[in-house]
Amino acid sequence: MLLTNVLIARYTFNANSVAIVPVALLNIERTFYIYTRIIRFQVPNRRKASDKSVAIALEIAGSQSALALVDRGGVIRHHCYAKTLWGRPAIASLEPYLRAIEYLFAHAKAEGWRVRGLGVSIPGTLDQLSRRPLTIPILPSLNDFPLCDLLEARYDLPVCLHVDVDAALLGEYHYGAGKGYHRLLYLTLNAVVGAALFIDGQLERSPHASVGHISHVPVSANGPRCSCGKRGCINSFVSLDAIQKMVQRALRRGEETSLAQRLNNREYFSPQLLAEEAVRGDAVALQVYAEVGRWLSEATARYIALFEPHALILGGSVLNASEYLFASMQSTLTMHASTSVDTPIKVVLAHLGNDAGLIGTTVPLLQNSGKLKTSMPASSLSPVSSEQ
């Protein structure tokens, strides 16, 4: 494997437990890049200090996919990215990921770490029995592709495959905001709304159609038509595309907003851009968050009534970017939950942020407490991803 323009520095630590991750700049056929990254983490228990076990995590996503070496304590030891190649045959689509995985193997060997397996999360659905992606909208060539079999044959290590929202829930349950809860509901808002449920140590794959399909919970009979064909689905009100349309409508009405100048300067619309303007008090940004908070609270309140979780974790790029949205949802959901269930529900933001999925994919590979049990319906089909 050819590695060019590589500069790597060793880890350094300070009293605040901040690790300066190896500084690296890689250029491999313009498909694989490593960036400088600072990771704040908890210092591992002394008795586990000699444990050199790690797992390789791959989180497939839109423009670029994230990879990492994760240790048994849920700490990311090294992080890199690989470009996602659209419209290619299966093997060509996987090539950047395989190069990145081999780089991580080499890095682990240089550091004296032992790789125990590979965890992969996908933005789609999967068949649990065959361990194959069922649908990956952004990479249709991988639909029904024997991904686990290929990776296990290539690297002679166990491979675990997850839907992205399930992987994020596993990470939060073991290392983040979900520790200690027996019934845990995780809601994520990225491109669409996604959901996963954890009950008594098991990742639930309920036969109820609403699990993993919260993006199609109806909240308004007169709402816009959804991609599923129905009207008024929550996804039509709070998806990233819906949020962008709210901003565009405000601009067409001539409402005064600093978003106009930033977008006219060809800045890319993102949850972070909207959050920055909300912090500055922009009226349109605050109005958008109020509307999104209202509709998302309506949908998630129904979900709470159906599954009665002890804790609700909110994650995803849209929710993580905005304290305003989280605050409005937290108060609304807490108030509603107190009237619909017997015990109070804790509503919190995801602690692991965008790393939750990466960390979660490695849980079955590194946990000492036994294999993770998964409850599945007869169809053995997983929930729908949060990025479709």
Rank of each mutant, 00 (worst) to 15 (best):
A9M: 08
Y11I: 03
A15G: 10
S17I: 01
L26W: 02
E29W: 04
P44S: 09
S50L: 12
I60E: 06
V70R: 05
R72D: 06
G73F: 08
H78S: 05
A82G: 11
S93L: 00
A100S: 05
A110E: 10
E111K: 12
E111C: 05
G112V: 03
V115P: 06
G119S: 10
V120E: 09
T125Y: 09
R131Q: 15
I138C: 10
D144E: 15
P146M: 08
C148G: 01
L157H: 02
V163C: 03
D164S: 10
A168S: 11
E172S: 07
K179T: 01
Y181I: 04
G194Q: 00
I199F: 07
S220W: 09
P224I: 11
S227R: 08
G232E: 02
C233M: 10
L240D: 01
Q248W: 08
E255A: 09
Q261V: 06
L263F: 07
E267H: 00
E267Y: 02
E276C: 03
V279M: 00
G281W: 03
D282N: 03
A290R: 13
T300W: 14
I304Q: 02
A305R: 06
H310W: 07
G316P: 12
S328F: 04
M329F: 10
S331N: 13
T334K: 15
H336C: 13
V341G: 11
D342T: 13
V348A: 15
A350F: 06
L366S: 14
M376F: 13
A378T: 12
S380D: 06
S382W: 11
S386P: 04
S386I: 12
E387N: 12
